[in-house]
């Protein structure tokens, strides 16, 4: 099932990038290359439970605009720090993460790193080690707004998808 999802996504990407819609030979070659990529992914054992997370795609679309807003805000904050380096108060601290699955934690950690001013350094169980340019960003993360939104994106977690499951 994951293989079919991956094949369809890869072939759609190929069509988008090549711009060939009509020539059957080229279309066939594109399908063959997509199939080859799926085969290689299967050989590399990449088609496991975290292969192609299609089911959270819709909720992710609702999450992205909010994340983009956060990115713009924190960009302005970091730009102020660059222009005046006396402002920075770097801190490194643990921040709790309430997501149940690997995927949810990856979404949360990636969101933290994607907003400038905070970097997720390490995940250990239910907490994330964060380095922040301004100490206040750590307190904002601990307040848990982004954490709750990422948990909502993650949705219901089935058995075998919890942290450390294979």
């Amino acid at each position: 099932m994951h293989a079919v999802n991956l094949f369809v996504s890869l072939y759609a990407l190929w069509l988008l990038l090549s711009g060939h819609w009509s020539d059957p030979l080229l279309l066939g070659l594109g399908a063959a290359s997509a199939a080859l990529a799926v085969f290689v992914a299967w050989r590399m054992e990449g088609l496991d439970h975290e292969g192609v997370p299609v089911r959270i795609a819709l909720r992710t679309l609702a999450y992205w605009p909010w994340l983009l807003g956060q990115i713009v805000l924190s960009n302005l904050a970091v730009a102020r720090c660059v222009l005046d380096p006396g402002r920075i108060r770097p801190r490194m601290a643990w921040v709790p993460a309430s997501q149940k699955s690997d995927l949810g934690q990856v979404i949360y950690a990636n969101s933290i790193t994607l907003t400038p001013g905070t970097i997720a350094v390490h995940i250990d169980g239910g907490r994330i080690l964060v380095h922040a340019l301004e100490g206040a960003s750590i307190d904002d993360l601990r307040a848990g707004d982004m954490d709750r939104r990422c948990t909502r994106v993650e949705g219901d977690v089935g058995p075998g998808e919890t942290v450390g499951g294979t």
Partner: peptide
């Protein structure tokens, strides 16, 4: 500019992510 002015590796990474995102 942040890459040149920041004091250590981690703060420089924050400056670098400025260009990567916005």
């Amino acid at each position: 500019i942040g890459l040149m002015r920041m004091p250590d590796v981690f703060t420089r990474m924050h400056a670098a992510s400025l260009g990567d995102t916005l």
